[in-house]
């Protein structure tokens, strides 16, 4: 049992999360396993607890009950092994793009020379070499988010947690960011958990989708993206051409509609 659970990037069992002294249950009896190198998307209606689950894995919040482990270690607090990217822009406005990327490494005690070299590499990875010395105030929303992504990657986390990372961006930038992110995940071979409300985004980025339902928040279904046959696509069009893509999107839309109807009836 121990050997197997150590290979699991995330292992959750009987997770319950309650707020306001137990009067509100955000998550009820949630269990999941995420393997190393897997890209998993959490989707579901508002209030289904998908963001709460991500925050529990990050260690920013702790479960009321249940066991939650990452690579065999119980999660008790946040740490650089689980890098998090938020919907709100978190690139620090008082640091240049490059200094932002260096900041995470600075916290880890990486020597200055190494920091600068690595920061340069990651600036290139997120296509921001030209903006190394720009402050976030002069960058677009998408660029600010790329700074935050590079800062997280530069810490070399084992897991990347993304909470609606592209939710604040306009459609075209979001699409560019999704493709960039897939490219980055392929290169860096990371385990990624992404919370999104965008079905197409979830299908495009994830190897598997975990669908949450509400009242109380729990997992409805874990859906592997079998139609991709283990591939990740550099460009979104390639995905649209796959047999089974349309059926997958239809299935998820139907599931989401069911949730909306149930919420309206409640």
């Amino acid at each position: 049992m121990t050997t197997q659970s150590q290979e699991l990037a995330v292992s959750a069992n009987g997770i319950v999360k309650q707020y306001v002294n137990g009067t509100f249950t955000a998550l009820h009896d949630v269990a999941m396993e995420v393997h190393e190198g897997e890209v998993v998307a959490f989707i579901g209606p508002s209030g289904c607890g998908k963001t709460t689950m991500l925050r529990l894995i990050s260690g920013l919040e702790l479960p009321t009950q249940g066991s939650l482990e990452t690579f065999g270690t119980p999660i008790s607090k946040p740490g650089p092994d689980r890098g998090m990217i938020f919907q709100a822009y978190t690139s620090f406005p008082w640091l240049t793009a490059k200094k932002n990327i260096e900041y995470g490494m600075k916290i880890m005690g990486v020597p200055k020379d190494d920091r600068e070299k690595t920061a340069q590499d990651f600036l290139k990875l997120v296509h921001l070499e030209k903006f190394a010395h720009s402050y976030p105030a002069s960058l677009s929303g998408g660029m600010k988010q790329r700074v935050a992504i590079a800062r997280t990657l530069a810490q070399n986390p084992r897991i990347i947690l993304m909470d609606e990372p592209f939710g604040a961006l306009d459609a075209q930038v979001r699409w560019e960011m999704q493709e960039m992110m897939v490219e980055v995940i392929e290169r860096e071979k990371k385990t990624v958990l992404v919370v999104t409300h965008d079905i197409e985004e979830a299908i495009y980025m994830a190897d598997r989708i975990i669908f949450f339902t509400r009242n109380p928040g729990r997992i409805k279904e874990s859906i592997p993206m079998e139609f991709k046959k283990g591939k990740r696509f550099k460009q979104k069009e390639e995905m649209f051409d796959q047999d089974g893509y349309a059926q997958m999107e239809r299935k998820l839309f139907a599931m989401m509609r069911e949730e909306i109807v149930a919420a309206a009836a409640a």
Binding site: T90, I107, R151
Partner: peptide
């Protein structure tokens, strides 16, 4: 100060002193 700055620093593994001095104060 935007709460996510502090949360981002926490997930980066920053200590409390570091977060106060290097994140909250400049923000």
């Amino acid at each position: 100060v935007q709460r996510e700055y502090t949360e981002a620093a926490l997930t980066m593994g920053a200590s409390r002193a570091r977060i106060v001095l290097e994140v909250v104060v400049p923000a």
